[in-house]
Amino acid sequence: MNSIKKNVQDTYAREYLALNKRSDGRGLMGFRDVSLNLSSIHTADGSAAVKIGNTAVICGIKAELGVPKSETPNVGYLIVNVELPSLCYKKIRPGIPCDEAMQTTSFLNEVCNNCKIIDLQQLCICVDKLVWVLSCDIYCLNYDGSVLDACLIALLSAIQTVKIPEVKYDKETEETTVFENYNLLKVNSLPVSVTFSLFNEKHILADPTEEEEQLCASKLTIVTNGSLLYSLHKPGGDFIKDSQIQNCVQHAKKRANTIHKLIKAAK
């Protein structure tokens, strides 16, 4: 960002923070409202659209048949991909995926592995021959901070809407027959990610907007299911004190419970 512009915005933000307020009227640890729409895409096997404030993402899950890896013959695949197209944010150029999209993709895949969001063995149809491949594509429609949080909520709620048909596989003839008998997936854990921005030593902002993310020196992302932590990710930037981590974890757990209630209500 241009330093003069940054300086002006920084002073503006500081004046608000001195009063323990933020420019959009929230308190320091205030979160934006989340809205959730399930099964918004009819052509996908499971989908969800999520808005956190002005941040909007949409997630579609397509189930396809595939061959498992020979080292893990009885598990299916869950592949998450995040796209940050140039339409969602002025700083993203069209063309190859930007670094942030890759980092978000990698982070989400890691979280899915960490907390075993679904038992991948239930995706197995025939050992070593046929499994389900769930490709989860997440598109960001509007980038206004905390995109990762929105992506994970979208992924989590979309997975809960996935219906896969029953498939029979004949080993001898190698024929597959699909029955019109749809089943929901069993979801093991409900991870919710919560992002905090460290403005300076004193001030930590929960659920930052894009403007706040630009002003802040570093970010802290906590993934939790309300009791256990799945990730405490702080990719460099300014340092953080122990008491601040403790405080963030507590707020993250509270937020996770709110999101769980929201997803339950949406179903």
């Binding site: 592995n113 256990l228 932590l229 799945y230 990719p235 460099g236 004190k241 122990d242 403790q246």
Partner: peptide
């Protein structure tokens, strides 16, 4: 002198 955490990267599940 005081403890200052710069970066944290975690995998797996754990309690606080």
């Amino acid at each position: 002198e005081t403890r200052r955490l710069l970066t944290s990267h975690t995998t797996g599940e754990f309690s606080h």
